[in-house]
Design a protein around this nucleic acid. Structure first.
Length: 645
DNA sequence: ACCACATGTCATTCT
DNA sequence: TGAGAATGACATGTG
């Protein structure tokens, strides 16, 4: 019954489309709002049609669910999605691809045998080689009672009808991913062909008997469009695990449920459940670890958003339940559409995605989080190392050694990865560790080689201040170590400068109080920390200053360009006005030359002129002599001046 | 030697 | 009230 209802709606939609092609608008909102709600009209002129909620409308919904308003990735994501939708509608003005999402249910599970409907690569063939695309829909509409029988037939693959010219579609999803860089051009191409085929379909509706069995040309056509939608929804399609089309249709599983049930097990085929699920959850831990405050984002969601342009996951509010963050904000209709996508090769795609995520290094994730261009805080290990988590977790402070706020916000090094207990467990070892990418830009005081050493043995207590001065004066160590490093060594402070600077203030205060440091050592520790913080602050400040200068320069250029443009427009307008004035004058002369006064003499253009009134009437008016008027005016002015005097 | 630039440091103010 | 961020000014090293 549900299938029949769907096919009835399909027929209605297709009828609506047909009617829209001839300029008749049909409001299916009330009809379909229960299933495809809400419907949104896209006014595309004479062929406007009602369509289902476009995905980009989720932006507002997401706003309602407190998605971080400053998330640039999200902005980019929705902006690009909106643009893509606009391009799609431009290229295919008669349909909105979202409308066709549920038609993909006719994709057969037996498509693995090579007869399945192509979601993307078959677009050209189906558009070119096959006749009117609407023919299939017409047949579909005529065979609505046979919809249940038609579905299994469709499951045997549309290529059985001869409509598919690309029989090998086992990895259509992968192909989709590979061809993703050129969706717009492909879309434009397919859209043009689509229009042609649609027009052909309109003209050939009457002779439907001579055409192929139902739906497949049309379905492939829809699938072509849908494949783009699916490409757009690549962050979601991995959440659909059911390949069985009939199951997808009959069970009516919402994506909401799919997200919850397949969270972390995206793409896992039924029956494999457990272990793989855990494995993928583990895989996602690295993704989640990019921000500890977001650790409660569900793996499924994380993966789904990982497909977004570098995952706005990290900016999602961590205190939001996962389904509240995404699934609640997704339209129910979108869920239905996506749920019903019988996507072949989804497992393959998911595994690729998983592998891709596994290959994402913490450094990459850190780069995604950090918007700073400074190299000082980018370490080889990155802040997303487990050590950081350990440290921050072991720390009683809420802050971390690495403050991920963008810019030069912290001394970043592998020393940060040391658990604090390990730091506290000092005896005679320094542990600056690998600072190959550390913040030490001070070419005057330090060099990277010092930090490349895995560990530097602390100078033992026998070394005196003189030794320090000797070291400082000596070329080698004096060049390799910063002043504060030397001072710290000289004062037997068992912490590296990085540790001193980056540790939370609570830890720092505990160390100052609890380790029996002398007053000089405490002062030095405070100075080292202050200088280190200030060094970073200075670097940030300079970066901001440069950015501000750059921004101002760009604005100056923009304003100059705008000024030049306006100047050109002004000149052009002046020229136009001059030409128009000249034309008017010439026309006036012509007209006056053909007119006669009461005595039958032609009007003198020197004495009269034509005036166009506000009501459109043109009258002849005597022309004032400017010399007379000005002279009289001057006389009156002179009189006024005399009166005043 | 001079200059431009990068970077560190200090002092100060503000949050 | 202290920590830290921000920033101007100065010092220093480098090319």
């Amino acid at each position: 019954m549900l299938k029949a209802k769907k096919y009835l709606k399909e027929g209605l939609i297709q009828l609506t489309i047909l009617l829209s092609l001839i300029g008749v608008r049909v409001d299916l909102d009330s009809y379909l709002s229960g299933y495809y709600s809400p419907l949104i009209e896209i006014n595309l002129g004479p062929s406007s049609a009602y369509t289902q909620t476009p995905f980009h409308n989720l932006r507002e919904t997401l706003d309602g669910y407190s998605v971080h308003p400053k998330c640039p990735e999200l902005d980019h994501f929705f902006a690009s999605r909106r643009l893509l939708e606009e391009v799609r509608t431009l290229g295919s003005p008669r349909f909105h691809t979202s409308l066709n999402a549920w038609l993909v249910h006719q994709v057969s599970p037996t498509d693995k045998t090579g007869s399945g409907p192509s979601s993307n690569s078959s677009s050209s063939s189906s558009n070119i080689g096959n006749g009117p695309a609407l023919q299939g829909s017409e047949d579909d509409r005529e065979h609505l009672p046979d919809a249940d029988q038609a579905t299994p037939e469709a499951e045997h693959g549309p290529c059985s009808t001869g409509a598919c010219a690309f029989p090998k579609e086992e990895n259509d999803v992968q192909i989709k991913e590979e061809e993703e860089p050129a969706p717009v051009t492909q879309l434009a191409h397919s859209s043009t062909l689509e229009q042609e085929s649609l027009l052909g379909g309109v003209t050939s509706l009457s002779d439907s008997e001579s055409h192929h069995p139902p739906t497949f040309d049309f379905d492939q056509h829809w699938n072509n469009l849908l494949s783009l939608s699916v490409t757009d929804l690549d962050g979601l399609d991995s959440l659909v695990e059911d390949n069985d089309i009939t199951t997808a249709i009959s069970q009516d599983v919402s994506l909401h449920d799919a997200m919850l049930t397949t969270a972390g097990s995206f793409g896992v085929t039924s029956g494999q459940g457990g272990a793989r699920h855990n494995t993928q959850e583990r895989n996602l831990l690295s993704l989640e670890s990019c921000s500890s405050s977001h650790s409660d984002v569900s793996p499924g969601m994380a993966l789904g958003l990982a497909a977004l342009p570098f995952a706005s996951v990290c900016n999602l509010p961590g205190d939001e339940p996962p389904h509240n963050v995404l699934s609640d904000c997704l339209d129910e209709a979108v869920f239905d559409q996506i749920n019903q996508l019988g996507l072949e090769g989804l497992d393959n795609m998911d595994m690729q995605l998983i592998n891709h995520l596994e290959n994402v290094t913490p450094q990459v994730l850190e780069d995604l989080d950090s918007d700073s261009g400074l190299s000082l805080e980018s370490s080889s290990g990155g802040p997303v190392s487990p050590g950081v988590s350990d440290m921050s977790s072991s720390s009683s402070s809420s802050s971390s050694y690495y403050e991920d706020e963008g810019g030069a916000t912290g001394y970043s090094s592998d020393a940060d990865a040391l658990p604090l207990k390990g730091i506290a467990d000092y005896t005679s070892e320094w542990s600056p560790l690998d600072h190959s990418e550390s913040m030490w830009h001070d070419h005057s005081y330090s060099s990277h080689t010092f930090f490349n050493q895995p560990s530097v043995t602390l100078l033992h207590k026998g070394i005196k201040e003189e030794a320090l001065s000797d070291i400082e004066e000596s070329g080698l160590h004096g060049q390799q170590m910063s002043r504060d490093e030397l001072r710290a060594q000289a004062m037997y402070i068992p912490f590296s400068v990085l540790q001193i600077v980056n540790m939370p203030v609570e830890e720092f205060l505990e160390i100052l109080d609890g380790h029996g440091f002398s007053a000089e050592q405490v002062t030095l520790l405070r100075d080292i920390r202050r200088r280190g913080k200030n060094k970073l602050a200075a670097q940030n400040c300079r970066k901001r200053k440069l950015d501000a200068i750059t921004g101002l320069q760009e604005e100056v250029e923009r304003l100059q360009a705008q000024r030049n443009k306006m100047m050109r427009e002004k000149q052009l307008t002046a020229k136009t006005m001059c030409a128009v004035g000249h034309q008017i004058k010439q026309l006036t002369r012509d007209i006056l030359a053909r007119m006669r006064d009461d005595s039958g003499q032609p009007l003198n253009p020197e004495r009269v002129t034509l005036q166009c009134g506000a009501n459109g009437r043109v009258v002849v008016q005597p022309l004032r002599r400017p010399s007379v008027s000005t002279s009289s005016g001057n006389k009156t002015d002179k009189r006024k001046k005399e009166k005043k005097q």
